[in-house]
Design a protein around this nucleic acid. Sequence first.
DNA 1: GCCACTTATGGTCACAGTGACTTGAAAGCC
DNA 2: GGCTTTCAAGTCACTGTGACCATAAGTGGC
Lengths: 239, 239
Amino acid sequence: MIESAPPTIPRFPVSATVDLVILTVREGALRVLLIRRGKEPHLGAYALPGGYVRPEEGLDAAALRELREETGLDGRALHLAQLRAYGTPGRDPRGRVVTVAYLALGPDLPTPVAGTDAAHAEWVPVDEALDAELAFDHAEILRDAVEEARTKLEYTTVATSFCREPFTVSDLRRVYEVIWGTTLDPSNFRRKVTRTEGFVEPTGERRTAEAGRPAALYRAGRAQVLYPPLLRSGEPERR
Amino acid sequence: MIESAPPTIPRFPVSATVDLVILTVREGALRVLLIRRGKEPHLGAYALPGGYVRPEEGLDAAALRELREETGLDGRALHLAQLRAYGTPGRDPRGRVVTVAYLALGPDLPTPVAGTDAAHAEWVPVDEALDAELAFDHAEILRDAVEEARTKLEYTTVATSFCREPFTVSDLRRVYEVIWGTTLDPSNFRRKVTRTEGFVEPTGERRTAEAGRPAALYRAGRAQVLYPPLLRSGEPERR
DNA sequence: GCCACTTATGGTCACAGTGACTTGAAAGCC
DNA sequence: GGCTTTCAAGTCACTGTGACCATAAGTGGC
């Protein structure tokens, strides 16, 4: 099929967009950055931030640009990776749109800057977002993104992306607990994290919180993957 | 950005295609189905089968259709899943093309049917394919696909998709060995496979090969994921 | 200062899963 | 029968994990 395409003219034109699922852990909940739509379709509904891919721009570059425009954040400081593409014919009533979803993970991020497209952006708890009505097929994308994030916690060290450095082992543990919806044994978690080469690096400093013994501080290590993985073995708890 | 798009007219038109990475294990090698391009660009080079997404067709449906057109195979009998999207601006010299790559896994498949677009299709060992010159960015796609397949063997039961039923434990082991490029201990592999609930189901039958004790025959089980996973722990062997 | 409370950190123990290896079973071939 | 080949089952040491206990080191109340 591909051989018979006339040069430079799309065989069947579609729009290409990127949508961002930006996750953070804030106030004990996994939250996603959503905007309130100001126009039809889906006026007033929550939607994932995103936008059109520009002519001379790659998909990753478009995701980075949108991230900067919508949140004022530098994508190189976050964990940003492609999730997958969504292109069901009726997903956008205005025409045929194929969107490439990206998953961005970051520490308790500032509320998005005003004066941008995302003036009405909010950090919405993922549970609420999935109960609310989301524009287009963004509920499906969000579900896939959360599942991807849960899985990535098992096999990679991305959990550190949710912590502002320096962080304590308990900070890191709470990331796992919030995203997995479980509780983890503090002692066993510490053993796993500190004994896994390259997961975290001690800074030598300590931090005294409101209560309890001061906790040692850590930075993210160089390892990208977790071997052996940290599997969410038991059944999930109450939700 | 998305709100300002004029209805039904793409903000910036691109072409949407699907490309298929169809893998099988044949004659002791991991092979990929490639076609010889009959037109420019990349005339004569190997390329992944694929084609344009049609107006009223979802991405998954397009992948299923292309699979049928190119190989005569029913995608429901294979393991078919989206890999990721590729949309670097210069990847196709004829214009802006975003392609969604799919990974298909199947047992020693018949040579593709003639009389289709894929008249010049061949099963090429993956090693050779990556050394040869592939059209567009298909080398990158193939590399990603093979890595994905290797990872899926660890955490899922897809290895059974490479075996025609009924199969022996040794058949299944050779799938792992070929795709991972390692050797596995037959005894430990058997223990793992047979003791993992839902991985394989005994048929009760036996098969006598050219030499050796007859092997028990199995079907694929109901389990989709492998828990605990079957990790490729040691370093890869010579390649 | 002493005490209750909280959180961090360290250790023990039993058990499951795995890698390396040995032994035995069941076929064909000479 | 003796040989080779492959399948199958068992042993053993080691690692990682979950459950649990004990201690350390802060805060705030009195």
